[in-house]
Amino acid sequence: MILLQNSILRLEYNPATDILQVRYPDLQRFHMSEIRHSLHVMVETIRNYDVRKLLLDARTTAVEIEEDENRQLTMELVAMLAKTRLVKIARIQPYDPEREARAQHNIEEARKAGLLSYEVATFSTPDDALAWLKA
């Protein structure tokens, strides 16, 4: 069932598997306040539905902001998600290997900072990601 759909995010929840699927938004400088707001709405939805498993699809996400701003946004999101009851996050990696390397660096920084209270795994296909979440 679709819980939210706007120009930035689409939240699709399957109560049978307790998996929320989200296409990670394009990070465009002139939309950052809307993106931050939408990510807050996503976290509130996770909290309200007591979601335990999240699938973040970053395959086609465009990143048009500076690396420092991207890292800061990632840390904010990780910290907000840590305040939910999430157990697992499966990421579908971007097609661009350079963007994926930066994303992995940000995830490692969050790990070092002790912000991850849930498992995070990265996959190249949605089927692999869903299989891991369902296991």
Results as ranks from 00 to 15, higher is better:
residue 47 R to E: 12
residue 66 E to R: 06
residue 12 E to G: 05
residue 74 T to V: 14
residue 73 L to R: 04
residue 71 R to C: 13
residue 107 I to P: 01
residue 58 A to W: 01
residue 118 Y to A: 12
residue 51 V to M: 07
residue 16 A to Q: 10
residue 133 L to G: 04
residue 44 E to P: 00
residue 117 S to P: 06
residue 61 T to L: 00
residue 78 V to S: 09
residue 115 L to K: 09
residue 32 M to L: 09
residue 27 L to Y: 03
residue 51 V to S: 03
residue 132 W to Q: 00
residue 26 D to N: 08
residue 8 I to E: 01
residue 78 V to L: 10
residue 90 A to T: 02
residue 55 L to T: 05
residue 50 D to I: 14
residue 135 A to R: 12
residue 124 S to F: 11
residue 111 R to N: 08
residue 34 E to A: 14
residue 1 M to W: 07
residue 114 G to R: 04
residue 85 R to F: 05
residue 47 R to W: 12
residue 11 L to T: 08
residue 87 V to Q: 14
residue 2 I to P: 04
residue 123 F to I: 07
residue 124 S to P: 07
residue 123 F to R: 02
residue 95 Y to Q: 08
residue 27 L to K: 01
residue 98 E to G: 08
residue 21 Q to T: 15
residue 134 K to H: 11
residue 35 I to K: 04
residue 52 R to L: 11
residue 12 E to P: 05
residue 33 S to I: 13
residue 39 L to I: 10
residue 123 F to Q: 02
residue 93 Q to L: 14
residue 15 P to Q: 07
residue 47 R to G: 07
residue 118 Y to F: 14
residue 119 E to Y: 06
residue 1 M to H: 13
residue 67 E to L: 12
residue 17 T to V: 02
residue 116 L to C: 05
residue 9 L to E: 04
residue 130 L to H: 08
residue 20 L to A: 15
residue 115 L to W: 06
residue 91 R to M: 09
residue 99 R to E: 14
residue 134 K to T: 09
residue 112 K to G: 06
residue 99 R to W: 10
residue 26 D to E: 02
residue 90 A to S: 06
residue 120 V to W: 06
residue 110 A to P: 04
residue 13 Y to T: 03
residue 133 L to E: 03
residue 105 H to S: 12
residue 37 H to V: 06
residue 132 W to K: 01
residue 86 L to W: 00
residue 105 H to N: 10
residue 39 L to Q: 05
residue 125 T to P: 02
residue 127 D to R: 10
residue 59 R to P: 03
residue 77 L to T: 15
residue 131 A to W: 11
residue 67 E to V: 15
residue 96 D to Q: 13
residue 94 P to R: 01
residue 38 S to W: 05
residue 61 T to Q: 03
residue 85 R to V: 11
residue 52 R to N: 07
residue 24 Y to V: 00
residue 128 D to P: 01
residue 31 H to V: 08
residue 16 A to L: 09
residue 125 T to G: 03
residue 128 D to N: 06
residue 4 L to D: 11
residue 109 E to L: 13
residue 123 F to C: 02
residue 118 Y to L: 08
residue 10 R to V: 12
residue 109 E to K: 09
residue 30 F to N: 13
residue 19 I to V: 15
residue 134 K to W: 08
residue 119 E to F: 07
residue 32 M to F: 06
residue 129 A to W: 01
residue 101 A to K: 06
residue 11 L to G: 05
residue 80 M to P: 00
residue 95 Y to V: 11
residue 130 L to I: 15
residue 30 F to P: 04
residue 1 M to T: 15
residue 36 R to H: 10
residue 85 R to L: 09
residue 51 V to D: 07
residue 85 R to E: 13
residue 91 R to Y: 15
residue 97 P to T: 10
residue 3 L to V: 11
residue 61 T to P: 00
residue 86 L to F: 03
residue 108 E to S: 11
residue 80 M to T: 06
residue 126 P to Y: 01
residue 74 T to A: 14
residue 59 R to F: 02
